[in-house]
Amino acid sequence: MPLLEAKDVVSGYGKVEILHDVSVHVDEEEMVSIIGPNGSGKSTLMKTIFGLLNAWEGEVNFEGRDITGFKPNEIVREGLCYVPQESNIFPTLTVEENLDMGAFIRTDDYSEELQNVYELFPALTKKKDQQVGNLSGGQQQMVAMGSALMLNPSILLLDEPTAGLAPNLAQMILERIKDINDTGVAILIVEQNAREALKLSNRGYVLAMGKNKFTGKSDDLLDNEEVGKLYLGG
């Protein structure tokens, strides 16, 4: 049984259908990439899984339970955490307050998780009491991911975590994501650095025009001539 499964999902904005029968699944402790050109529905799929958009058809299952139609604040209690592509931090709150908000639904002590986040991203330790809006793009991304880790999720949904970052920073963030995955957290990631993301992942999906185009083990996708030419930039 997969940890997370989206089955034949149809969804979109307003009356515009973006996703036409898309299916993806993630097994426990697995890292899975979703790649594809702009407008192929990658972010739409993430938003639909997390309940920010309604699934018009199809279903979303988590740990065997049907969570289709759940609201984001209900889904977060199930053990899924989502880091949106944009506006994924509270800019006027400090680093520590952002992490507090990540742990908002917890009523127990979370100092251990807090400690873990600072160990994963040492750059944040000195900035604890600074407003996140004043930090660099890379550090903001660290705060966004750290905040999502405060709930010890069994799966993390990441929407373009390296968007707008310099290549070396992007590589560093991807490596941290792999570190997170190595601790047993499953990862579903949408990534523009498709080749790098696939290298770190177990499997991948290629979406095009809101449909499943290819799927397979990362190595197979990286070796596939057509995928390489069309979606990995040659």
């Binding site: 997390f50 609201k71 949106p84 506006s87 509270f90 307050e97 507090d100």
Partner: peptide, 23 residues
């Protein structure tokens, strides 16, 4: 206070506040 911080967080970004499970 927790609710005070949640209030500032909601003022910053209401969509993200929902994603974090804030009512």
């Amino acid at each position: 206070t927790k609710i005070g911080k949640a209030m500032r967080a909601t003022a910053d970004n209401i969509e993200l506040a929902k994603v974090k499970g804030i009512d």
